[in-house]
Design a protein around this nucleic acid. Structure first.
Lengths: 154, 154
DNA sequence: TGCATATAGTTCGATATCATACTAACTAGT
DNA sequence: ACTAGTTAGTATGATATCGAACTATATGCA
């Protein structure tokens, strides 16, 4: 049946994505200095890209983790001196996260030390190959995002 | 610089893969019956696909997790009655994992209940799109596998 | 045979993540 | 104002995963 074949194919597709994600995360964590976890680096990188003075909830939503996880992650980054969490003048329940100079330079150095390993992959891949896969991945991400917000099933 | 641009592009590529992996895992776990973790299901599915009577190490290597994790996962599956772990006649250090009928039918039912949600994505995606992305993902996986076995960096 | 090394699996401690429950503070409707 | 409901963040307990140390078995070499 067509539907079954499509199902099997999409299953293999997600399986492959999961494996690649796992392998790239493992490579990331082997190379990142200071034993920081990938998720910690991602928060630093996010703050650099979108600007700091975000609330924990904003970061958690952007990075698709729970707020409890974000509390934990910000605690780790704070203990490393990479972020500072202060009060939010606009909302007494909330807080504001700011990147410290140490956090910013750690992020920059981490990217520099990671670049060679991932450049190795980038060189083995043609730009055409990346361009073939990226739009599909983005489309899938949007589909999954939509499914998450308004489930068609359960 | 070309190299920097390539690095930025590959970074976005892996970032997108990570997000899709995370979202699809979350969707998976929302729908899988019985509160089983995705990793547990993956082991069941692996045993169905490659046949059982695998050793824990073989499964761990195929699924890219440590043997300690596999010990834990097989314990959970065993407590559910989905697998049985017996001695390995060929190697006294080792064991053999066998799927039980309950494990096999759980896997089948799980796939059936998962199919609609992922079929939703499959229908939004054209086969051409999947065929554009899959070979690239497989190539990246092989590159990362090779990098893991013989690191060019550190 | 006997010993050094390698491998399979387990155990243990640490950490990341989540779900749930809780507190504090904001918001809306009356 | 008050009250009900909502939202931000934290605390707690559970689970998945990993690395390192350990045990038992296997292998290779002298």
């Amino acid at each position: 049946m067509d539907r079954d074949k499509a199902g099997a194919q999409i299953f293999g597709f997600f399986n492959e994505i999961g494996i690649v994600s796992q392998l790239s995360s493992a490579l990331f964590m082997r190379l990142i200095p200071g034993g920081l976890h990938l998720s910690h680096f991602i928060v630093l990188n996010h703050l650099v890209r979108v600007g700091d003075c975000r609330t924990p909830m904003q970061i958690a939503a952007a990075l698709q983790v729970t707020k409890a996880t974000m509390t934990h992650t910000l605690g780790v980054l704070g203990r490393h001196g990479f972020v500072e969490v202060g009060p939010n003048p606009n909302d007494g329940r909330s807080k504001l996260v700011r990147l410290t100079p140490a956090g910013r330079s750690f992020r920059d150095e981490a990217i520099a030390s990671l670049a060679p390993a991932f450049g190795f992959v980038a060189e083995a891949l043609t730009p055409a190959e990346i361009q073939a896969a990226l739009p599909v991945l983005e489309k899938v991400r949007k589909l999954l995002d939509a499914e998450r917000d308004s489930p068609t099933i359960g």
